[in-house]
Amino acid sequence: MKKHLILSILLLISLRYSFGQGEKMKEIDDGGSGPYPAIAVSEKALSDFVVYRPENLPAAVKEEGKLPLMVWANGGCMNSSIHHERLLTEVASHGYVIVAIGSLQMTVEERVHKPTPDQELVRALDEMTNLSQQAGNVYHDMLDLDKIVAAGQSCGGAQVMSIADDPRVKSYMMFNSGMGDMTMAGASKESLNFLQGEIIYIVGGESDVATENALMDYERIDQVPVVFADLLEGGHGGTFNQEYGGSFARMALDWLNWQFKGEDQTGLFLQQELDNYPGWEIKSKNFNP
């Protein structure tokens, strides 16, 4: 009896992880706290990426309209988003589609560290754009390609900067990342000159090795609006390992909803009203009054 019960449980787990024709699906944090329970899924046409998205895309689009798209680059410029999956799931559950570099891993033990090409985010954009335009595809007519954000953590932020000149990208998010005087992943301080949209740096205080470089970037950027959001005791790992991605995820969602969904967050980002963000400091510049 016990053996049959164990086999039944294993079968249910395998069915839950199966998706489509040989594709895999994973649920993190019960799909996130948002109104659209999210999944992480490997798509046959995107074998080198993970898509984090509402499980019921049509329902989310019916309520929200076409969904904004995020392309995500990982810490270390590596080929796995598993250490960022809680934040990415949380964002997706609020009505976003995210394409992250690296194939889907079910457990940390599966992770094989390999570096990824500097321009991998361009491939993510190209392939997701193609899928969204193919009739009969699950993403067909589901994405708002005028609302694209490039985001990344640590070295992944340099991969974001390497595509700063891509006209499809309307906003940028740098988590625990900054160029400073470094050259990395095909980007350098010169890449700041190619930014075309509003950018936010989300860092973890003095113990975050990226904070100094992020501050240098903040001072140097003068052609686009920029926000510097600092969780003073966050460290280089931020809150990625916390349920629902912690306050890094909440900050990310406030930024995204302000950028792409018309939510008024000027109090937070321009007036530094931080009642909901204890332990944080924020500053901003280059915004029109």
Rank of each mutant, 00 (worst) to 15 (best):
L5N: 15
S8L: 15
L12D: 02
I13M: 04
Y17V: 08
S18F: 04
G22P: 01
E23V: 04
K24S: 00
M25W: 01
M25D: 00
E27F: 02
I28F: 12
D29K: 12
P35I: 15
P35G: 14
P37H: 14
S42Q: 02
D48S: 11
F49R: 09
L57G: 09
V61C: 13
E64N: 14
G65D: 06
L67Y: 04
L67H: 05
P68R: 00
A73D: 13
N74E: 09
N74G: 11
N79W: 06
S80H: 07
H83Q: 08
H83E: 03
H83I: 02
V91P: 06
V91M: 08
G95H: 11
V97C: 06
V99Q: 03
Q105V: 01
R111V: 12
V112Y: 01
P115V: 06
T116A: 10
D118H: 07
E120T: 11
M128Q: 06
N130K: 13
N130M: 13
N130F: 14
V138M: 13
Y139I: 05
D141Q: 12
D141T: 07
L143I: 10
D146E: 06
A151H: 10
A151I: 08
A151N: 00
G152A: 05
G156H: 06
S162D: 05
I163L: 01
A164R: 02
P167A: 03
S171V: 01
Y172D: 07
G178E: 14
G180D: 14
M184V: 11
A185K: 02
G186T: 07
G186W: 10
A187N: 08
A187H: 00
E190F: 06
L195N: 07
G205F: 07
S207Y: 03
E212L: 15
N213L: 13
R220E: 15
D222K: 12
D222T: 15
V224Y: 11
P225R: 05
F228P: 04
F228S: 00
A229N: 00
D230G: 02
E233I: 09
Y244V: 12
A249N: 10
R250P: 00
R250D: 14
L256W: 10
Q259R: 09
G262E: 05
E263T: 04
E263A: 11
Q265F: 07
Q265I: 04
Q265E: 08
L270G: 03
E281G: 01
I282Q: 01
N288S: 05
